[in-house]
Write a protein that binds this DNA or RNA. Structure first.
Length: 275
DNA sequence: AGAGATACCTGGGAGC
DNA sequence: TGCTCCCAGGTATCTC
C-alpha cells in the first residue's frame, strides 16, 4: 500500500530504469482504473523519450521530451516493473510501454485504484494541474511545527485524519499516521485543534524520522506492495503499533486497541497514547 | 468550510 | 467444499 516511502522508492528506481529510454509501443489491457486508460493509446507516445522521474506526495511524474508527462498514482495495490518482453503478462497488468531496447515498463494494479495518464506540464519541472492543492512535503523544511499548529487550529476532526489530509501534508497514509502518533504518544482520536505547539514539534520530528527510516528500508509491504525490482519493503519489521491489535504494546506492555476513524482502522496503546 | 459517509475494486480470510 | 460477508485502503464525490 504505497504511501510516501513506497512512492519514493518506486520513483528512484524508475529514474534509474527509465530516464533516457524511448517508448516505441503502447498496449492497454483494461479500459479503466481510476480514470480511463484508453487515451494512452491515442496520445502519440511512440517515439517519446523519458527525461526525468519526479515524486510529489504519492504521485510520480515521468517527464517526456515533448512537454508532457506520465502521471502515476499507485492506489493501494499498484506495482510497476521494467522487464524483458519474454515475461508473460500477469493477470492484473493493465498497461505495457514497450521501450526501444526491448524492455517493457509494466503497470499492474490488482484493485484498480491506480492512476496512469498523460498530462500537460507546459514547462519542464512543473507539476500538472491535477496536483494543485497538495500540501507540503513532510521531508522538506516547509513541514514545521508552526505550520502544523496553524493548520490544525479550529479543526474538530481527529488528529489521525488530519495527518492523513493531503491538503495539509502529503504522503502520510494509514500506516505512517498510526506509527507517528504512537511514537508521539498522542491518541489518534484527539481533536486536531487540541494539539499544543510542543506536541506539533514532536509529531513533525517523529513523522520525519519514521518516513526517512521507511524510505531507507524500501518502504512497508503489508500484502500487495513491492518495489520495482520485486523486493518487499522491510519497514514492516519495524512497525510498532500498526496491525498489532490485541498484542502487547512494545513500549509499556498494555494490550493494543483498535478503533475506526474515518472508516479506517486505527491501532493505539490505551496506556501510553494520551487523550 | 469542514467533516463524515460512501463508492470504487479485488483477494484473502473468517464463519457457517 | 462452497457460499456469504467483511476487511484492506487513497481518492473523488456526495451530503449535512
Amino acid at each position: 500500500m504505497p504511501e510516501l516511502p513506497e512512492a519514493e522508492n518506486i520513483g528512484r528506481a524508475l529514474k534509474r530504469g527509465l530516464v533516457g529510454r524511448t517508448i516505441v509501443k503502447v498496449e492497454v489491457f483494461t479500459p479503466a482504473m481510476r480514470t480511463s486508460l484508453l487515451p494512452l493509446l491515442s496520445a502519440g507516445l511512440e517515439g517519446r523519450r523519458i527525461t526525468d522521474v519526479r515524486r510529489r506526495g504519492r504521485y510520480l511524474v515521468a517527464d517526456l521530451d515533448d512537454g508532457r508527462g506520465l502521471l502515476m498514482h499507485f492506489g493501494m495495490s499498484g506495482v510497476v516493473r521494467i522487464e524483458d518482453a519474454r515475461v508473460p503478462r500477469r493477470r492484473h497488468e493493465h498497461v505495457f510501454l514497450h521501450l526501444a531496447d526491448g524492455g517493457i515498463f509494466r503497470f499492474e494494479c490488482t484493485r484498480r485504484f491506480s492512476l496512469f495518464e498523460v498530462v500537460d506540464l507546459n514547462s519542464p519541472g512543473r507539476w500538472p494541474v491535477q496536483l494543485a492543492g497538495l500540501g507540503v512535503e513532510p521531508l522538506t523544511p516547509d513541514f514545521t511545527a508552526d505550520y502544523l499548529f496553524k493548520c490544525s487550529r479550529r479543526r474538530s476532526g481527529c488528529v489521525k485524519n488530519f495527518l492523513m489530509d493531503n491538503a495539509v501534508v502529503v504522503g502520510i497514509g494509514n500506516i505512517y499516521a498510526t506509527e507517528t502518533l504512537f511514537a508521539s504518544r498522542i491518541h489518534p482520536a484527539r481533536p486536531a485543534g487540541d494539539l499544543t505547539l510542543p506536541e506539533c514539534v514532536v509529531v513533525v520530528s517523529e513523522a520525519r524520522r519514521i518516513l526517512a527510516r521507511a524510505i531507507e528500508l524500501g518502504g512497508t509491504t503489508i500484502s500487495d506492495f513491492q518495489n520495482v525490482d520485486g523486493s518487499e519493503g522491510k519497514f514492516v519489521q519495524e512497525l510498532q503499533i500498526y496491525g498489532r491489535k490485541g498484542r502487547p504494546c512494545p513500549r509499556c506492555g498494555a494490550v493494543v486497541e483498535c478503533l475506526r476513524l474515518g472508516g479506517r482502522s486505527s491501532c493505539y496503546c490505551p496506556r501510553c497514547q494520551s487523550r
